[in-house]
Each structure stands twice: as C-alpha cells, then as structure tokens.
Design a protein around this nucleic acid. Structure first.
Lengths: 207, 207
DNA sequence: CTATGTGAAGAACTTCACAGCT
DNA sequence: AGCTGTGAAGTTCTTCACATAG
C-alpha cells in the first residue's frame, strides 16, 4: 500500500491495542486475530486492520497477528523505544496523585522534576523528588538535561503562564489538566484532560 | 434550519464555549462575536457558528451573541440545569484528588458517596464524606437516593467488576480513569480518561 | 457595513466487501 | 478454508462562501 499519513483517530487507538497486547504477552499468547483484539478494545475488526495497515503489513493471512511483533511495531510507531522525561507543575492535589502513579515509569515516562509556587511546598520531598520553585523552572529543567513533556496541574488562572514558561524552557509537548483552553505555538503539541468537560458530556447523554 | 442530531464533536466543544462565556459574564461582558469566542477556545468562527446552529438561532446578525443567553442555552443543552449526583470508587491517590477538586460542585456535580475495598480506609472521613465498603455499593447508592454518574479510580484489575456493580446499582454514566477498556451495555454512557494513552499520543507527536 | 446562519463543497474517518496469501 | 489488507462506498465532521438580517 502507498504509505499515507496516520489519522489522529488511529493514533489515539494504538495505545489501547498496545495495552491489550502487553496483557496477552504476559499471559503467554503469541497469536491474535483482528476480531479478538478489536473486541477487547471496543472497536471492530475492519477498523483495527485498517489502523494497523497504516504502520505496515504485520499480519499473516489465514492466521492472525504475532503478538510480540505487533507490540514492537506499535511501540516503535508511538516512539516508546526511548525514555521520555517529564516535569509536573502544580503540586496541589492532582500533581502528587500523578507523581505517585506507577503506570508512567513502567511505560517509559520518567518524572524528573516537580514544581510549585507555594513556599511551604518548595524544598519538600515528594516521592523521590524535591519540589522546586516554579520561578526557577527554566534553570531546573536545564539542570536535569531538558524535559520532553510538561504536565500542568495548576489552577486555571496560572496555566497559560506556566505553559509559556515550559515552552521557553524547550518543552515541546504539554498535557494540561487545568480547566482552561491554552494557546501554544504550532510546533508544540498540546493535549487537554478536562474533568469538568467530561462530566458535562456525560450530563448531555443523560439528558 | 431543520434541526438535526448534534454531532459528538460539537457536544465536546460546548463545555469549552460555556467555560469561556462564564468568564466573560464574570467580567461583565454582554456581547461576543463568533470570531472572538472561537479564538479563545482554539477553534474557528465558522465551526463555532455551525456548532451553535445545532442548538438554535441565538445570535444577532451584525452584532454577535448575547453572553447570558448563550450561557443559558448551552447549559440547557448539556443538561446542567439540574444537579447530578456522583459516586467515586477507589480512594487510592486519584480518588481523593478528585474528591477535593472544587470545580465539580461549582458546576453542579455533587459527590454523594465514596468507596474503597481497603478495610483501613473504610469508615474514614474524607472531605465531608465517609468511605463506604465497595461490597455494599448498591445498598449505599440506594440509601443516598441513587447516583447519576460513577467515577472509577480503582486499579485496572477490578475496574470492570466495579463498572458492573455501578450499572447494577442503576448508574447510567461512567467516567473511567482505570487504564483498561471497559465494556458496558449500550444504555450506559462511558467516557475514558487515560493518562498513559495521553502521554503516548504526545510521544508519537514528539517522534 | 458587520456578523450570523447555512447549504454546499471538501476533508477525514469508518465500514463494506472481496481480492490475495497462507 | 481462514484471516489479512485495502480500494471503494458510505458516513460524519469541517470549512467555505454567500445570502440574510440588523
């Protein structure tokens, strides 16, 4: 097939495929069909095959997909072969919860710096990191050798300012939990996780 | 216009419009153009006008939209005129963080029950609620007069079981934070918030 | 003249259905 | 015979561009 740009929607599904494949691998399964895999991630076989076809041809007709091979290919596509360095800004309630989440490190995301602006929190140890003053964000990030992804868990009122600081410190990807729409230059990737929005969407469907 | 079904994508944007409109209202602004509103929520004017056109015709040509009226209409569409009752299952790290989040109550989402299975946590007071045993989920939910939305913040391994319990207790909408794809009957609405997935999507774009 | 509302065109995504390998 | 890979068809969403109203 002529290789085309991978659709956004496909990219969003790849992590789900990967997660289930890793589960299968742990159980010792070696082969899986598009039907079974699709079923477990809540999609259909045609969709799954189309998604995978954007990455290449990894299946065996009449048989199915090799679990280990698929894991390798999806990981490669998602850029999960290297370790990404993360900074979290905002050590209120959500920040420490994310810091304590074991899942990240397992998947190759390493938190290397945490920030807050509250003097009572600065210098405090959390996990195995010490909270830095957000005022020194750029210097601290330089000292740890740069950060790939910035997670914003501050109040909405300061989120844009923090985003600007992160970008100024060379961060190229931002995951924002603050309930505000951020503006970033086109060379920076932004994802928004918005709890109130999620609840409001549920509310719509309940109505 | 003949009123058609509102697209999913429009529904996902309405909360963003609403949030910015509320900010404007607080500042005392009464009129806003599609251009300015679109700019602040990261979309374009045509998109915004099309989105709003699904709800009705609220603008004034040559002038713009009345802020208060738009707030009223979007709130109505999203079903935000009543208070929704929420239960959180899983009082590990994320659960308490969500419980402490002030944003929910402000927007009409009231947390009325919290659950865990750890005996050390059951009976403990958190916020102004007491942690109930997840084993009694159905009875507790009945006692508080029913719950509209269930939030799952348990480990992935028990998330499906918890989802089933919630559904059995009459919950019709679920917001799942556990890193696993849940299966629910078609009369139940499910939204997934998946932190690892978000990071992996960012990773893709960094690669 | 300004800004909305909206058919129509265009782009993106999903599903179909079957050819192509094993 | 069984399951993948994929053009083509179908659907949904976005953008255009202009008629319409104030």
């Amino acid at each position: 097939m002529k290789r085309k740009r991978i659709p956004q929607t496909t990219i969003a599904r790849l992590p789900l495929y990967l997660r289930y494949l890793l589960k299968l691998a742990r159980k010792g399964l070696r082969i899986i069909s598009s039907y079974e895999l699709a079923e477990h991630v809540g999609t259909n076989a045609a969709q799954l095959r189309k998604d995978l076809s954007y990455l290449g041809e990894f299946g065996t007709r009449g048989v199915g997909y090799d679990v280990a091979e698929l894991i390798r290919q999806i990981s490669k596509c998602l850029g999960l072969t290297k370790e990404w360095k993360i900074a979290i800004v905002g050590m209120g309630k959500l920040g420490p919860a994310l810091l304590g989440y074991k899942g990240f490190e397992q998947e190759g995301f390493k938190i290397v710096a945490i920030f807050d602006k509250n003097p009572k929190k600065i210098g405090k140890k959390m996990g195995n990191l010490v909270v830095s003053d957000v005022t020194n964000l750029k210097e601290v990030i330089e000292k740890v050798g740069g950060v790939d992804i910035g997670i914003i868990t501050t109040p909405a009122s300061v989120a844009q300012k923090v985003a600007n600081q992160l970008i100024d410190a060379g961060v190229r990807a931002i995951l924002n939990f603050a309930p505000v729409t951020l503006g970033v230059p086109s060379n920076v990737v932004l994802r928004q996780v918005d709890l109130t929005t999620e609840l409001q969407i549920l509310s719509f469907h309940l109505t």
